[in-house]
Nucleic acid binder design. Structure first.
Lengths: 376, 376
DNA sequence: CTGTTAGCGCATTCAA
DNA sequence: TTGAATGCGCTAACAG
């Protein structure tokens, strides 16, 4: 219909950018009066390098003049690998994932990698599906944020999806514990955090502690429960604010009055709900009831009372995970992490790399000495 | 290294999936014994449709058997347009954007589009850069979340980037007001919300009201200030929790005691900071000081006291914006919105479409009758 | 209705 | 070193 789109190619001097269609490498090559291959080489340092001052400069200049931006799709197709990575989270709205995402995007940006983000809304099927699409897309890798399900059925299929992706050169890194996956991972020390939380409460004299827990199918929950140890009253509910309210209300109702002097919520969202439940049940925090959360999301300090919680370095975890992913393909700096647990042996197929992140209890206003403790 | 885990895929016929490289359309075509074009047609309903029971089924079956997933890059290259859309936000961590992102991803998922998300960290340059990359990529469009800067310098360059993108067929939709941009937009009624907030406070007897404002360069801020009207003490600071604390502290210090009986923060993040500042200044909320926020982010109800704020239907706005973007290229349903202000004339170049979203004041515990009002 | 045939923009092998 | 040629996986005219 129109030939106005292609004539811009061979016009050495004063031509302006074509009105339609992007500038292609071919155009740049023509403008610089070199071959396509040469242009590609100087612009994307393909194959063997070369400088050849004169030529290289001419190409650079031409590219700049024309406002050349390479077409990622063409590149991806030609070299069978794109420069995007996928970031799969459960829910963008959850501050937990938002923090991780921020870190990840930050690290990605530094490497000129684009991030495709998807939310699974906690549906494992979507996670698998998305992984497949990333694979088909030749994505450089995928970041799986959020603890995996321990349901063997889905986790098996997920494992297959991961394997398929990996086999084709994609790298998969998990943030948070994954049941089985033989993939790189960045994990917070959940059990230790839970241990710290309980120790803190016991040091304050609390003996009757309730646990506002998320679904036992989540590995994260399991680890936290494990760190907590035995002898606590536990109620499971959704890993959300509502779930926290619900579980806490149930716990409080089952143990009226001083039956329970403290509550440990397995994440801050649930803690927020627990705080609300305590309020509605007429329990003052921390006078009548101490409450501890987990994660230290941004809003934790703004709750009232300010929440004592276990802090996870979410953002750093996101950054580190992305770095791990990106250094998988090409050899960037090994970058020693907070505590690199098992490093890959230099051998051919890199084995699993795991980076552990220590966590730390942040004491604020929601915990205090147990009422009964004073008399002890 | 180990094949112990991959045998899961069932293979009716004798062929096993190739160990390396993804399954291609060509392979599917061969397996189904049809031509490449035919396979493409049934699998991607390219060009004119066709069903032809027998053939179509054979192709479908073959695709399924082989586990075919089309290569988005090849498709993008061939049809000169990809099926990804960009979502540009200031900060993933900000619940405001998270809510919008959720809505957008939801709508995108329904249409099978992938979302590339990027955070600009409030740097306009990054926004422009990212737009350029999306353009080079042949992205279907871009969603610009977050009010634009009114700085003529950057906004001019942004406009150029938008124009360039648009000219090549990409659609750009803004969420929130943009100074100039002649693009589709989904906007909350900021001025009305501000009006409601002030009216609410005045009805409660407040006469001396302070405004905890964000940077006047943000259009959103301007609109809210405009809706607020005159006669208020305003202090500007960052559009963050810290900024809110800072501005509120300043305001409170400048008007000791009953100088100010209420504060309106121009977003909930600032409101959270203002609440903290009030607490630190020894002002009880709402007894001594009423506080109103803006946005109604998820945490607003968990602040203490629970925040009275202007609710924006963030998630819906995100969904609607994505829908607007997606219905730009192909003709999907016009879908009447909450209040379609100006619809595009059916003519060739669609003109700007704007969808206004009404907002509503949510009264909670942070506002009460002005102390002095009782004696009036 | 189905198959053939060119490219899309780029990386790369192979000659020169 | 540099250039010409081939193909990545798929779509979209064209034929038949």
């Amino acid at each position: 219909m129109d030939e106005q789109r292609s004539r811009a190619a061979e016009v050495p001097a004063g031509r302006v950018r074509p009105v339609t269609g992007a500038v292609t490498l071919k155009q740049v090559a023509a403008e610089a009066e070199v071959s396509l291959a040469t242009a590609s080489r100087v612009l994307h340092r393909s194959g063997g390098r070369e400088v050849r001052g004169a030529l290289a400069e001419r190409v650079q200049a031409a590219a700049e003049r024309l406002g050349y931006v390479s077409n990622p799709h063409a590149q991806a197709l030609a070299r069978a690998r794109s420069s995007t990575v996928g970031l799969i989270v459960h829910d963008v709205t959850d501050p937990y994932f938002a923090a991780i995402a921020t870190g990840a995007m930050h690290a990605a940006h530094a490497d000129g990698v684009m991030v495709m983000m998807a939310a699974t809304f906690r549906d494992p099927e979507l996670e698998i599906d998305y992984l497949g699409r990333l694979r088909a897309q030749g994505a450089r890798g995928a970041l799986l944020a959020g603890s995996g399900s321990t349901d063997p059925a889905v986790s098996g299929r997920l494992a297959d999806a991961i394997t398929a992706f990996t086999r084709e050169g994609g790298r998969v890194t998990a943030i948070g514990a994954r049941p089985d996956a033989h993939i790189d991972a960045v994990v917070p020390d959940n059990t230790d955090g839970a241990r710290q939380a309980r120790a803190h409460l016991e040091a304050l004299g609390h003996r009757r502690i309730g646990v506002v827990s998320g679904p036992g199918t989540l590995l994260t929950v399991r680890q936290r429960l494990e760190g907590l140890g035995d002898g606590l009253r536990t109620v499971e509910a959704d890993f959300t604010r509502e779930g926290g309210y619900e579980a806490a209300a149930k716990l409080l109702a089952a143990h009226p009055d001083g039956g329970l002097t403290a509550l440990i919520a397995l994440n801050d969202l649930m803690a927020a709900g627990a705080l609300a439940a305590a309020r509605d049940a007429g329990r003052r925090v921390p006078e009548d009831l101490s409450v501890v959360g987990f994660d230290d999301l941004p809003f934790a300090a703004d709750l009232s009372p300010a929440l004592t919680t276990v802090r996870l370095p979410l953002r750093q975890m996101g950054e580190r995970a992305m770095a791990l992913l990106l250094t998988g393909s090409d050899g960037a700096s090994p970058a020693a992490g907070p505590s690199a647990a098992s490093a890959a042996e230099p051998g051919a197929a890199a084995s699993r790399r795991t980076v552990d992140f220590p966590v730390e209890l942040v004491v604020r206003a929601s915990t205090a000495e147990a009422a009964g403790a004073r008399t002890t």
